[in-house]
Design a protein around this nucleic acid. Structure first.
Lengths: 176, 176
DNA sequence: TTTAATTGAGCGAACGTTCATTCTTATTTA
DNA sequence: TAAATAAGAATGAACGTTCGCTCAATTAAA
């Protein structure tokens, strides 16, 4: 809260005129992030090129964000594990996000840009793995350069969405 | 600390006989994780099939772990952002891990299992993105099933390591 | 002058931590 | 063998600090 006060250029007392609690403040920030994400989705959905739309989406949320914003997101994610109410809100947002991503994939598959017989839910889960991973790398590793890694990530996304899954070679596992 | 005490079946006082501080305790847990990871690496390195070795590594660290272990890792990662000493230790571990991964990739590329003209550092960064992403999804999303998503992740890894990067189509960006 | 905006010292609760105390186990003495 | 003693393991109430939060007091705007 001290940090947030400093960042907002406000005393704690004044900050509490705008938000009744830390929880409400976090939910407010989450809401802002949600709105921002949904705006980006609108842009991505209106792009006739699915992969370009997705790249812009990724750029906006994983590269262009300031270190501070990324840090704040990390903090909220961690808070999720402590505060059940925040966890609820967070999951509601993620549910909406998933639906939006699934829709994006479906329309792309209808246009033939990606596989048609895709397990959309799993694919979206994989995308979210990538997003969270990028976010946390940024939050935790000062040497991490999203600009360098993003092309690889996009390459991976392209593969998983356009190439049929390899027949999982059921090689006998080497037990450790 | 309460949770850790409960988990350890110990009173706080007794726990402090084994660790001089919460910081030391966290560093101890990190050290245990590090040792475990290094053991897994040894197994992966001795597997003649790179991808099978990597899959076992991933399975061990991202699927087989209990929800509790995953949660603990998440907590430590979050702590990293607050406690500089823990951040230092964490980064030291990650540096070692990176080196180990780079070595793994290099030997695989020498055996012709993956691309030879790979930017190993970036590839490892991408792998760590995937690992952190899987970890955090598990920590934050109760509906996340690593068993379902892992095949997709492995597919992606296979692509990025064996297929030369697409010439990044420098399409004009659609500004939001 | 009234109203709204803003402050920051300070509150209670929760945190990480400590320590006087009790319980257990091992060792010595009778 | 049983009692006495010493040592180690474990406890949990309590400590000081930090956290989220409040409110009497002050400043700025209407």
């Amino acid at each position: 809260m001290q940090e947030i006060c400093a960042e907002a250029g406000m005393s704690p007392g004044n900050l509490y005129r705008y938000f009744p609690s830390k929880e409400a403040l976090i939910i407010g920030i989450s809401e802002r992030n949600r709105a921002d994400a949904m705006e980006s989705f609108a842009a991505a959905e209106s792009d006739p090129n699915f992969f370009r739309g997705l790249e812009n989406l990724a750029r906006h949320h994983l590269v262009e964000r300031t270190a501070q914003e990324v840090g704040l997101c990390a903090e909220i994610m961690a808070e999720t594990r402590r505060n059940p109410e925040i966890a609820r809100v967070y999951q509601a947002i993620e549910t909406e996000l998933r639906a939006r991503l699934v829709a994006l994939l479906k329309s792309a598959s209808e246009r033939g840009e990606i596989l048609s017989d895709l397990d959309f839910d799993s694919a979206v889960s994989a995308l979210m793995v990538l997003a969270d991973g990028m976010s946390w790398r940024r939050a935790v590793d000062p040497n991490f350069d999203p600009e360098v890694v993003l092309p690889l990530i996009l390459h991976m996304v392209h593969c998983v969405l356009t190439e049929p899954p390899r027949a999982q070679a059921a090689l006998p596992e080497k037990s450790s």
